[in-house]
Design a protein around this nucleic acid. Sequence first.
RNA 1: GGGAGAUUAGCUCAGUUGGUAGAGCAACCCGUUUACACCGGGAAGGUCACAGGUUCGAGUCCUGUAUCUCCCACCA
Length: 758
Amino acid sequence: MATNIPAKLLSPYNPAETETPIYQLWQKSGLFNPDESIKLGITKPDADPFTIILPPPNVTGTLHLGHALMITIQDILIRFKRMQGKKTLWIPGTDHAAIATQAKVEKEISKKEGKSRYDLGREEMLKRIEAFAQQSHDTIVSQVKRLGASTDWSREAFTLDEQRNLAVRTVFKKMFDDGLIYQGSRIVNWDPKGQTTIADDEIVYEEEKSKFYYFKYGPFTIGTARPETKFGDKYVVMHPDDARYAAYEHGQKIDLEWINGPITATVIKDTAIDMEFGTGVMTITPWHSNVDFEIAERHSLDKEQIIDKYGKLLPIAGEFAGMKIKEAREKIVEKLQSKGLVEKIEDTYVHKIATAERTNGIIEPQIMKQWFVAVNKEFTTPHSEINGIASGSKTTLKELMRKAVDGKQVQILPDHFDKTYFHWIDNLRDWCISRQIWYGHRIPVWYKSSSLGLMGVGGGSQIYCGIEAPEGEGWVQDEDTLDTWFSSGLWTFSTLGWPSSTVDLKTYHPTNILVTGYEILFFWVARMILMTGYMFGTIPFSTVYLNGTVRDSQGRKMSKSLGNGGDPIETSEKYGADALRMFLATATTPGMDSRIYEDKIKGYKHFSNKLWNITRFILTNTENYTYDAQFSAWSEADEALTAERTEFIQTITKEMEEYKLHLSSEHIYKYVWTRFADVILEESKLIFKDGDEAAKASRAQFLHHTLRIILRVTHPYMPHVTEELWLLLTTGKSISEISEQNVTIEPSKLLLAQSWPA
RNA sequence: GGGAGAUUAGCUCAGUUGGUAGAGCAACCCGUUUACACCGGGAAGGUCACAGGUUCGAGUCCUGUAUCUCCCACCA
């Protein structure tokens, strides 16, 4: 065996020995931080920036393969752009995920200690949640590192830390002052289980089979699935064009016998009624139904609360007061039956009930005082770079969101998702941002009751919205916290130091690309566009890359109950993070779901070994030739191979610039394996055996040159194995020797710092 | 009810300026202790869901149908 072959190359590649120490070497180099990279002379100070902000994982648990996918895509892009000489910044962070985190900890405490959050009190409860969040955070960070992510840890952020909290209060106050945040009594989605409101998009509809009742209501028959809400129903509504009820006039009063005795009902004609459904007549419960609420608003009707915050009936229900909904339902039907008011009961009625995504509680709509962001209200934007909205003109938040994507300033990949986006925007209602939970950003509003009587007229209370608490005695802060997406919406600029006017903000914002799952297009992507458009009149990122969902081998969604979640760390331990990354890169196209196949991941482990053996082969067979970067006496055959190689590089460079990583990764795999290893190396054996000296020298140099190029282009996909091979080639030392002997590696000598080949 | 996507080799999926169908895995045959068995060579396998249309030419564009998936929407 040759003497200049590093001993480590003689045995098969073992990712477990390489990956962690290689990551430590990178971290020591400081090159994930663009400021360091400039200081070291690797990145030019005036280079174009390229920024990605990592979608912050929730501190509710640990990472799954879906996270691994999104991290892989971002790291490939960042490493690619870094090698192209860009001033690259990738900021990591985590999300406090308000309701989800609180619910999880509450559940745990209730299970272990049998206590509720009210037993513990706000302060103690928050302490517990923070401890949990910290632990979860630490796990997530180590997982992100294990995957090889070249994130700048010196800039790490958390959606609920001091800096981000200041950003939240600053935005809130500005919106409040502009009249875009208001407090209003509106119908909201109340989760009796979580004791909080939730947003429209936090609702999950579940199909349920239930009974459908037909009751006699004076001269009418009304159909309902919810008899327990009917106590206050004194309006009976029908479509104005319904011939069957032409005899009744809008506003007509009718006396009739109802659940708890005689009442006077009023006839209302409204086009919201579906003539085809049921009997075409219904009574309304504005306090507990959106549609009913809207009807009531249109005709200025009374609204009465029937059900309380805990899902129990109020005194208006008479003898049924205090009962839970389910219990009351049957008893009410019994009573109506005894009064002869039940016409028929169907039990094949299938409908969808609204449940809370985070707690599974059944949503009970309620009219409550909540904070809202007005999406349709006009305001004057001082400065706008969004096409179609002039600086100083009047606009709405909805218009900002629409125009940013309409003009392709924000490009969504795959582009058909912009239709989905517009559809959502056009149907958007005001965004309820207050939550009745403790974990989150407290609403920066304070109240002071004027019991001293100094205020005179009205004698009510004072309200103050500010970034800091108001001066003086007697101010009490609003108990509520903000929807977690409010702070997430600021993420692209709150991570860059805003509201201070930092160098980072000037340099790296707007960011270049957001990589995230399509399921949070509305939750998050839209709200980032809203917040950035509002605060700066710009876009938060120019491209949104929507990755698909990672499913198991049977096409099922990953879930805890199925136990098929897939642990990226376990997979990395088994096959190497590089193999997992390469698999994820090849298996995914934007917007399309993909399945995990362990056999394929295994295939990419073989690929890392192939790189290993290619290196060994070249070193063994070219012992008499040292790598010469200036070599130019190419043989005719090698000229041709060089041209072919150049074409290959151009192809993958173009694909990567267009974010088509599934194509570039496959092309790299094919070039390396089926072209370079299977054909070129095999031919080389003959040349080294029988060729003349010039041909041998040319081929030896070609192999050396090409190997270095292969390591560079493969590096974004499989950073660890390529880095170790690079170090073996350039220093003759393995990563274990480097760490054990404390060998200093100049940051500029790392593969991480090399330039992208042309 | 509205919208979007999918349908290509046994399985999982690629395939955008329309030009004679691709990969990985599986299966089949052969070879090799010669960088690598975490290997090499070879062969096999598809009326690109279906029906029309545009075109010299369609997996790719248009229309319609079927099946599946997802998203949005509180028919009480």
